[in-house]
Structure formats: structure tokens, C-alpha cells
Amino acid sequence: MKEVKSSSVEVHNLTVIYHRKPVLWNIDFQLPEGKLIGIMGPNGAGKSTLMKAILGLVPLNSGYAKIYDQDLKDVRSRVSYIPQRQTVDWDFPATVKDVVMMGRYQHRGLFGRITAKDKEIVDEALEQVAMQSFKNRQIAQLSGGQQQRVFLARALAQQADLYLLDEPFVGVDASTEESIVSMLRSLRDQGKTLIVVHHDLHTARDYFDWIVLLNASLIGVGPLDEIFTDEKLRTTYSGKLTVLSQVGDRLREKNFPVREK
């Protein structure tokens, strides 16, 4: 296992089983601080589950995850989570400002008063994602990219040190993707750690400093250049590729009609 001097996230012997099927198998790694880290792997590789396991959102069958060498419950205020956009109901009666204000709940608790300072922080967060002019819009009226920006603003309002983003680029327009990436980079340059579940191999090379390659078990973890090798990628994606090439072979063999005449 790669040793890291000061680790943001450490996962040890982590196994998660859903309905008797292992989704994550004996995962072990340490991630550094202050890096932009991608979790990559084919569909169903357990990328999102790994993120949820780190955040304590799914029960672990074995092992543990530590954040800044502590249990999650002791460092919650330093951790922000940006779930997949599709997991929430965007028809909800809430405005952009309401959602971003949720980022302050953790600091104020369930009962504390929202202060002028909180409002200021929310405004700043909205400014950073260029959504200031939409702040009184109902969230149902936003495009996919705008929804993602709102989620990002909520995380910014939380003022955390570690950000976990689950597939932030799915269904967003190119300009939003670009602005999210530049925002992630600037957060990294401020010393924050960002962990991103991502599936597009082409862009990964541009976006990330570190990579976690996953396919139920850990294939590799480390700086981009060490991990993004053809061999490791083939191991990670091999299952899927074989199935697809088998289908391709079948089609050729039998001269299967791909398109009806």
C-alpha cells in the first residue's frame, strides 16, 4: 500500500456486501491532502458505494474509513458531500437560496439561528458558482448544469476541507463542466482535498492529480502518471470489455442482422 504523509482519507480492509453480492472487496488505501483525486472504474464497480462508505451512508461488512486520522463523527464539519444530482427531487418547493443555506445547517445545528454572517457566506457561495442572479428561483426551474452549481454552492457554504463529489459532470453542459473543474482546481490550490467519482476516461487525465482505480476490489491508487497505464486500465475495465467483444464476435460469426431491413 502506498504510504502517504498526511492523509485525508484512509480506508482499511473495507468490504461492503449488498444482498449477498460483494460490491466492495477488501479495499485498502490512503489518500493525500490537497489533491484533486478521481475515483474511476466501470459501471457497477462500486465507485459511489465507496464514497458512501467513507461517509458512513452504507453499512460496512468489515473494515473502517478514517478522515484526517479520526472517526467521521468527530470531523463532520470538515467534510462536505455532493450527492449525485439525480438522487433528489428537484420539484421540491425550495429556492436556490434555501438549498445553499442547507450548507450552513451543520454550523448552526437544527435549532440555532441563521445569522447575517450565514447569509453573507451563502451569497458568496452563489457568487462563486455564478448563480447569484438565480437565488430566488425555484429549483424546479433550473437546468441540469445550474442544479449542479447549486449543489456545489451548498458545499462551498459549508466551508469544509474535504469535498466528496459523486459524478458531478453527469448531464451538465460543457460550460458548467469547465467552470466546475476550474473551481475544483482553485479549491485544491487553497489546500482543500477533493475526491470525485468520475467515469470519463478521456477527461480524467486532464482533471486529476491522483487516481483510485476500482472494480469491486482496488486495482490501483497513486499519482496519475503511475496509475493511468494501459495495463492497469485494461485490468480495471477488462470485465466489461470482454463481454462487449464477445457480443461483437457473436455478431460477426452468425452474421446476425444488426438492423432490420
Binding site: Y81, T87, F92, A94, Y105, L110, F111, Q158
Partner: peptide
Amino acid sequence: TLGYRGLYLSTFDPGYATAIGI
């Protein structure tokens, strides 16, 4: 009134709510 934030956030985004300790 007292439980507004808890009810609100756990209804809108249970994943995020759990992550911040609700």
C-alpha cells in the same frame, strides 16, 4: 417549527442530511 430543518433536509436530500450528521 422546532424540527423544521431536520424534517426539511431529511425529506429533500437524505444522503446529504446523513453526511452532515442528521
